[in-house]
Design a protein around this nucleic acid. Sequence first.
RNA 1: CGGGGCGUGGCGCAGCGGUAGCGCACGUGCUUUGGGAGCACGAGGUUGCGGGUUCGAAUCCCGCCGCCCCGACCA
Length: 555
Amino acid sequence: MRAALVADPPAATSADRRRWAARPGSCSSGAATALPFPVMVGAPGATIGARGRPAGKRTRASQRPVGGHVSQERFVTSITRQSEDFSAWYTDVVRKAELADYSPVRGCMVIRPYGYALWEHTRDALDGMIKETGHSNVYFPLFIPKSLLDKEAEHVEGFNPQVAWVTHAGGKELDEPLAVRPTSEAIIAATVRDWIHSYRDLPLLMNLWNNVVRWEMRTRLFLRTTEFLWQEGHTFHATEQEALEETDRMLDVYRRLCDEWLAIPVTSGRKTESEKFPGAVTTLAIEAMMRDRRALQSGTSHHLGQNFTRAEGIEFLDRDNLRKNPWGTSWGLSTRIVGATIMAHGDDDGLVLPPRVAPYQVVVVPIWRREEDRVAVAGAVETVLAALRSTPDGRAVRVHVDWRDDVSPGFKYSHWELRGVPLRIEIGPRDVAAGQAVVVRRVDRVKEAAPLAALPAEIPARLERYQADLFERAARFRAANTHAADDYDTFRRVIEEEGGFVMAHWCGAAACEKRINEETGATIRVIPFDAPADPGRCLIDGGAATDRVLFARAY
RNA sequence: CGGGGCGUGGCGCAGCGGUAGCGCACGUGCUUUGGGAGCACGAGGUUGCGGGUUCGAAUCCCGCCGCCCCGACCA
């Protein structure tokens, strides 16, 4: 885990406090590394929140004694309910939790400090796994000469409508247009031709963290933006077997990222011909279920065969003294995964973040009225902070203390719940007197008192349990919304009325797949790897199928 | 690209011929603070742009521009 984010020192001036408080993710202590947050400002004229809502009416919630039962009351009222309009809910949450903003550029977003911190934790976890599996990070250019992109026929055709071109530079028209990379297969293949001569040069295992541009007609923050951040892995192998293993291995890395870090259960499988990456032999993907029961493709891994190496004329001399084209793979996971995290866990009160990637794992809300109370509470808070920064197992907890004195404790509760902080610790004069703190879980608002002395051991354990609980909750939700359909009428009814994943038989014909999509809006998300043998008849033409495939309406 | 809608302080809106107002947010002060506090005072707008009609245009007409929503691509 990364270093703890350090809390605001109570000694800060009130103006300082406000400034820091306005930038969650900022570190105010010299001890911790200050995250470099460029403060990006939405330019004037940007359309912000075209779908806004009237500001929340302050319904003064009745006061309740500490240690009470779990409240069903809805405290955050400025967010559209999921049940009312899931898309509006999503946009509200992204904007009000200050994850991202629209920008002056159509279809492009500004990722704000809190959103970027969430992406960074996800990215760092994945980067670690990519390195553990033997890959090195590299960088390739943003611009790709047209001639390179044109070499692989299926690739060109697939990406053409989405490519942005640079035709002028230096005050004149370029001899050859440059594509703003939609992905880097072409330029990488063209470059590594000079690096690969012998089987001894293989495998070549590379990964790039970069931005790509794909011109989109309809965009959504994080889920589909014209420019997005991602990693793209590119590898070259001496045998097809090795390339196939690599494709599987990296898909499983993505599965583990979702599983262990994001608490999102995913289904791994193979894409159909119509859904595969342009230029790939096969495409594998992980699919996750969002809380509106729709599917979201969250990561893809492609077996490229020799398509790109042949197009580029990459050859190596093998052990058997024969010249061969290497086999390639590529795999990518983007900022879309942030959208997945939001939609897989969030509720009507805002974000619900998995502790392992949450910018703040714990927020402390000190409560005081008189100056003497504040001093007493500050003492207890300092003790807790020191303990959380050096827990018994040596791991630091990312904790933030909200010392703002211009908003009420109740406001702070809502503020941090909207932002999905897993645990809230409330410490007031009554707690100090009792030598305890009140700990509240974001996901279910379960509220418990815990002795101050026990917190160093308690909090990390509670965060782990919380992480596990979130995964369990998501897995139960997915199970409850996965159905089987054995005939087309049932299928249509389930897709229409229930939504979710529908497991059904498909003969493998593109025509049947197409008809289902056109008539129901559902697509084959994947042909799952772990589907049990279960022979049946295709929904459309009755053709034989050995097992079921996963259908859903998707993002 | 076809259909629908909207452009008015930072955000959300009202005003629909007589020279711009409300809520939120913002600033200052006082009282507050264990589930989104209250009051008072204050600051903030060449009404998207350009033309026209009129004594007079945010308002009516024409033309641009921009954005949003709905239908064919994608991580």
